[in-house]
Amino acid sequence: MTEQTWQYRTPRHRLVLWVSWLCFVALCVFCWQVMTQDTIWYFVTDAPRQAADLGSRMIPPRWSYLEKLWLPLWDTLNIATLGTLLGVLFAIPVAFLAASNTTPSRLFVRPIALFIIVASRSINSLIWALLLVSIIGPGLLAGIIAIGLRSIGFVAKLLYEAIEETDTIQIEAITATGASRAQILNYAIVPQILPAFCGISVFRWDINIRESTILGLVGAGGIGVQLQASLNTLAWPQVTMIFIVILATVVISEWVSAKVRHAII
């Protein structure tokens, strides 16, 4: 009998693992150097002083500015909510076209639907807003459409996954009664995905509130417009006030969204 020592992995496997790690570390170091070649290190070492300076300017917040923020806040909430509605409206058909069990054609329609989803998901709503402001001009409408475009991919992706996970036996049972395709959708698939759909929409609404607070930085309306104006005039106490309002809105919307999702599921 040969003597065996216990080893976690074979020597060959270990060698491959070590070389991969080495390459990975080398890659990281290389990236670091490329990234920082234009960095002015004086600014970095100076940062603590800058931070202290910034802090002293930001505090205390200008509380009286609050009354000028109510209207932008209302706009922000509207951008998020109308944008979510718009996105959901388009996401539903896209999801059904993308799900492999409901798509009319796996070869032609499904790849197109999947591309719409990936394109919408890859591009942040701020970039959509940047584009739309340049196309249709600054304002709430650009913000709403930007939020809508970004939401399509998110909602459609989660929804089509939910559609693909539906119980096939229930669908088979409704098919066996002689139901048409539309009736199968209505009786067998929709009841199964409805809770997931509501949860996804509310979840996205919550994210959209967060994202719509900053769309104004590129001119797409809402409280971000005030933020941009205050930043441009270096009115730091106002900036602090806006941050506080944004933070409060985000926390409240997160709470509402969690409550609603809990109630549905």
Binding site: I169, Q170, E172, A173, A176, G178, Y187, A188
Partner: peptide
Amino acid sequence: LRSVRRRIGMIFQEYALVERL
């Protein structure tokens, strides 16, 4: 096929009811 399927009733192993209806 639809009109012939409606003439044939089917009963399933796991009941196959649409549970949320």
